[in-house]
Amino acid sequence: MQASKSIKATRKPTNLSLDSALLKEAKALGINVSRSAEAGISEAVKRHKRQRWLKENEGALASSNAYVEANGLPLAQYRQF
């Protein structure tokens, strides 16, 4: 997300259906609803991508973990901690 903050992203008007009481409270508190919604969606996208990556790479991760369990860490003899 750091890159998106430094580059001005093109914004697109979008209609959302929100709980009216929550929207009223957010506005009363001076919360920028558009930016807050964008931050929430950004976080949801990040979590979804992470879960998808973990699922797609599940076999490779399991294989790597099994190797380390059976053989130890490669180059472990050179670790200083």
Rank of each mutant, 00 (worst) to 15 (best):
K46E: 14
R50T: 08
S63G: 04
S34I: 02
R35E: 15
Q51D: 13
I7A: 12
A39D: 06
K46I: 08
K27G: 05
S36D: 12
R52I: 05
N32H: 13
W53M: 11
A37L: 14
T10S: 11
L29G: 13
E69A: 09
D19T: 02
A37R: 02
I7R: 12
G59Y: 03
T10A: 12
K5N: 13
L23R: 03
L54A: 13
A44H: 04
A3Q: 11
S20P: 09
E56Y: 02
N32I: 06
A70C: 10
S20C: 07
P13T: 10
N15K: 08
A3D: 14
D19W: 01
E69S: 10
L29Q: 15
Q80E: 08
K24Q: 14
L16I: 02
K49L: 13
L22D: 15
M1F: 07
S42R: 03
E56Q: 02
N32Y: 06
Y67A: 07
S6R: 12
Q80H: 03
Q2S: 07
A70M: 13
T14F: 15
Q80I: 08
V45T: 13
K55D: 11
T10C: 01
R52P: 01
S42L: 04
T10D: 14
Q51W: 04
K24W: 02
P13W: 00
A9S: 15
S64H: 10
L54F: 01
A26Y: 12
Y78W: 04
Q80A: 06
E69T: 04
L61Q: 06
E58P: 00
I31P: 05
M1H: 10
E38P: 01
S20V: 08
Y67T: 12
S20L: 02
A66Q: 09
A70R: 14
A76K: 05
P13N: 03
S64D: 04
S4E: 06
K8M: 08
G72F: 04
S42V: 04
G30H: 02
R79K: 10
Q2I: 07
N32S: 15
N71A: 10
R50G: 01
S42H: 05
P13F: 03
S34W: 04
S20M: 05
S34E: 05
A3N: 11
G30E: 06
L22N: 13
G59M: 07
L61M: 11
A66G: 00
A44V: 04
K24G: 02
E58R: 03
M1R: 03
L16T: 00
K24T: 14
S64N: 08
N57Y: 09
A9W: 09
S34A: 13
L23C: 11
M1A: 10
